[in-house]
């Protein structure tokens, strides 16, 4: 298939950018979207033009490195699919495809389609962990975890940290990313001790960088792992509770 590509080019973080138009021909429909860009880049190099910079690593939809806004949709038109797993058969011959980087103040464009996403790491550093020093762990079967709870935690933990939720959100909010990590840990018995401390610290750090949630649900649609916005509600509840809860009594189990 032959395609026209409108691709955002920007030499570095400080400069302005604009769309450049390229034609690529003879693309196989079995190719992935990024392989199509590889072909473009080889053409560009051989014609003496600097290749388009874009980030991608595992190309299996799990590392979360890749991410492009394709025709106005983060990760492109296929649901529950990261950019690297998107294939050209989802496009039609002769189509014009517009490619843009993630846009958010917290994700400054570094070059062309590459953005810096380290604020997501800052959120994890604020509390996205269970304090379990190496070697201090009890036997793995000491704490039973109901299967349903483990499954729900896994649903949340499936987040690949690509930032598509931020890119998709009309408000540039990172609630789905943050909520997914909070839910993963807060749903497990091991995560209870730090539950409210974690929620408060992660939400506060998130809000230093990102917008707020107005419940559009756009993040859930863009998420390559189909993480549910139900987790955002859970985060909101735990955050509110973190303000009320008398944490001195967290060690007490509810009786009856």
């Amino acid at each position: 298939m032959d395609l026209t590509l409108r691709i955002w080019r920007q030499p570095d973080a400080e400069s302005d950018g604009d769309f450049h138009v390229y034609a690529v021909k003879g693309i196989s429909s079995d190719m992935s979207f990024l392989e199509m860009l590889d072909v473009l880049n080889e053409q560009l190099i051989e014609s003496g033009e600097e290749p388009v910079e874009f980030d991608s690593d595992c190309r299996e939809g799990i590392c979360g490195t890749c991410g492009l806004v394709i025709n106005g949709v983060p990760h492109g038109p296929e649901r529950a699919t990261a950019t690297c797993q998107l294939h050209m058969r989802k496009f039609s011959d002769g189509e014009t495809i517009t490619v843009e980087p993630w846009r958010a103040t917290a994700f400054p464009v570094q070059r062309d389609l590459v953005v810096e996403r380290s604020p997501l790491d800052r959120i994890i550093e604020a509390g996205g962990y269970i304090t379990a020093p190496t070697g201090a762990a009890p036997d793995a079967n000491e704490i039973p975890v109901p299967k349903e709870a483990a499954d729900a935690a896994m649903d949340a933990a499936a987040c690949i940290g690509c930032g598509a939720c931020v890119a998709a959100c009309p408000n540039g909010a990172a609630q789905l990313f943050t909520a997914a990590k909070i839910a993963h840990l807060n749903l497990l018995p091991q995560g209870q001790a730090e539950r409210y401390r974690r929620t408060e610290a992660m939400v506060d750090t998130m809000e230093e960088f990102f917008g707020s949630c107005t419940n559009h649900g756009e993040c859930e649609e863009a998420c390559p792992k189909e993480i549910s916005i139900d987790f955002i509600a859970m985060m909101n509840r735990d955050y509110i509770r973190s303000k009320f809860k008398n944490r001195k009594r967290l060690g007490q189990k509810k009786v009856g």
Partner: peptide
Amino acid sequence: DIIDQCVAQGVPFAREYGGL
């Protein structure tokens, strides 16, 4: 020890219905 460590960190390994 690795399994113990990972479970303590909250790695959501697959579980049986009994929670183990």
